[in-house]
Design a protein around this nucleic acid. Structure first.
Lengths: 219, 219
DNA sequence: AACTGATCGATTATCGATAATCTACCGGCT
DNA sequence: AGCCGGTAGATTATCGATAATCGATCAGTT
């Protein structure tokens, strides 16, 4: 699932090596295959993907831009992100963006509210059937729509660049594995939507902050 | 002035073509030499910089990461940012980051407060001497330090990636050219620092928002 | 032994050329 | 005229090879 491509381009169409390589590397970094500090050497990667050095380098430059790796001239590329501190920082960033988006977007148009409600129904049925991945997919759509509602394209691009389709999955799986599962998160979303419907900015942002607090509490 | 490099690496040491090219392109995009929508063709750029296609492509990939251009497969790279709407969006993002940073960092340690005070003195003397560029440099240091104070590295990297050393300069020059000049901005900073000293989060964030409102009012 | 400087292997940066793909244009057909 | 398919030129994506740089090692000196 690539939310960004789905929203912006008609077809993902990954004919291009660079994209395939980049997505593979993103996944490996965020799921821990490459722990923080791992050196990503270009020629070995080139051999692994059966390509030349060029597409590897370009993929690495893109990752540098999204902050997952850092490069030092003539010294190579190292994995930067994905330890827990970094995950928490990203959530902090996401929180302030989503809170501000709420403030900018309330009151919502009926069509937007219907869209959120549809997401919520799908999330609920996923929880009912213990379909964690289904819940995660839909929750990400819900939160992305929240940011989209702000009308701030810069927010949306930033949100997309943080790769929640991978990194959110990691955090939510841990919550799903807890005793109470995803039910509390679902209920918080319900309360949030109710306040959004009521046009109650204060109440809505409070619920949204509570949602993020749940994730932060993972520790 | 490259704040990012100055803070992270000992020496910028731009021995590498990619960096020189990237910085040139950033400046051209943000100062309007390349208006929004301009197609950046690789071979002509390669000829201009007397390099081959490779370093150009990598520079473009980095710009894509920081959101200044967008690429479509086999269709090339176009300038994305730097119209006024985009500038406003970036300021919105910067505002929520700086406000949140304040909330996280208050109350400040004495050393940090002294640093802010030193910035402020430099800003004041620059205004007194009508040295706009000097004011801008120091104001950017002040605001960067604000974000740094949050301890959130992700915030800081994002702040750096927005190229305020170019884009902030553009906005502030317009304010400096107005009737009242930079004086009101300086006074708002003074008020802000006073509230920071007092450990008054509410008051400080209010002053900070007022600062950003001044910029947004540029229209 | 500690220090200095030269050298080698590994790795990144860049090059020049080729393959893949897109866009615009053109002629034939309905 | 308007539509379709194909071809040419422009542009991007990738390749394979070379140059530049780094880190570690080692000989020689004190």
């Amino acid at each position: 699932m690539n939310l960004r491509a789905a929203a912006v381009e008609p077809a993902p169409l990954r004919v291009c090596m660079r994209d395939r390589i980049r997505e593979t590397l993103v996944a490996r970094i965020l799921d821990g295959t490459y722990p923080t500090g791992t050196k990503l050497k270009e020629l070995p990667l080139a051999r692994e993907f059966n390509v030349s050095q060029a597409p590897i380098r370009e993929a690495l430059r893109e990752l540098e831009g999204s902050g997952l790796v850092s490069c030092e001239r003539y010294r190579g590329t190292r994995v930067r992100g994905a330890d827990f501190a970094e995950l928490r920082e990203s959530y902090e960033l996401r929180e302030i963006m989503e809170v501000r988006s709420l403030e900018l977007a309330v009151p919502y148009a009926p069509a937007a509210l219907q869209n959120f409600a549809r997401c919520l129904r799908t999330m609920a049925s996923a929880v009912a059937r213990d379909n964690h991945e289904g819940y995660i997919d839909e929750a990400l759509r819900f939160h992305r729509a929240l940011v989209q509602g702000s009308g701030n394209q810069t927010f949306l691009r930033l949100w997309d660049s943080l790769h929640w389709e991978v990194r959110g999955r990691i955090a939510l799986r841990r919550i799903a594995a807890q005793r109470r599962g995803l039910k509390p998160l679902l209920n918080l979303h319900r309360a949030l939507l109710a306040r959004m419907r009521a046009g109650d900015v204060e109440g809505a942002t409070a619920r949204l902050r509570a949602l993020f607090a749940t994730v932060s509490a993972l520790a």
